[in-house]
Design a protein around this nucleic acid. Sequence first.
DNA 1: CTGGACCTTCCAGTGCAGGGGAAGGTCAAG
DNA 2: CTTGACCTTCCCCTGCACTGGAAGGTCCAG
Lengths: 129, 129
Amino acid sequence: MRIGELAEATGTTTKTLRFYEDQGLLPAADRTPSGYRDYTPDMLGRLDFIHRGQAAGLTLAQIKQILGIRDSGTPPCGHVSDLLTERLRDLDAQIAQLVDLRRTIAELHDNAALAEPDTCPPDQVCRYL
Amino acid sequence: MRIGELAEATGTTTKTLRFYEDQGLLPAADRTPSGYRDYTPDMLGRLDFIHRGQAAGLTLAQIKQILGIRDSGTPPCGHVSDLLTERLRDLDAQIAQLVDLRRTIAELHDNAALAEPDTCPPDQVCRYL
DNA sequence: CTGGACCTTCCAGTGCAGGGGAAGGTCAAG
DNA sequence: CTTGACCTTCCCCTGCACTGGAAGGTCCAG
């Protein structure tokens, strides 16, 4: 299977596939006599895993690490579980921060609704922010 | 006031102040005879505004726009209010998306807790993701 | 044998908000 | 008179995940 076919089958681009190979997420592909990359069908599952990892908010570096564990012959499930735990912690922190920010902005916005722009002192630029 | 003093007074760095000047957020500063930047105290308020804008999640480009309105002699309050409205919309969308993702990841993580790694099919890399 | 679709490598740029560090000028204290 | 802290401009680097484009090779249909 050539790179264009694999790209289409997995909903990505040839550029991205070469980039993944370069970054070590995909093994160096076999080549046809003329130098074209020639992929085996198991790349479909690997690409799918990469997409699932991205959907879960993992970085390519983290996904690469998981793939490395799998490639070394060990089921990476334990590490995946750890990463998911970490991801949950990060998400909770991130959500809390955004909710906080939302509250702050809502207050500012409420104040701005009562605005008397002409009384806004220029040295503060705008007092509603 | 020299650039180092202004940086310290506003809790930033000289690098950042030169960068802001370069990006048009700060007007080109006056110079001493020897070429040093010489700031007037009203930069304190301007820098403070920039920090408030950043704390509200505005980009430097948006802050620059507001400053431009103020510099043209108009109170920018109306535009600020619009930006805050937009920011609220974006934050709501972003929070909803993260909460969604959190739920998905929590499910994956719960599944992973019941993991039997040895039954995890290699072609999927890890089925708990 | 020519055109077009596909493939190759390599280099550079995107957005965001700065940071690092070199090479050199300036100022006040000791 | 020198030391050290400060200032100047300049250009490149960071992280993240790609994307664009140039220059050239390959494959197949007409």
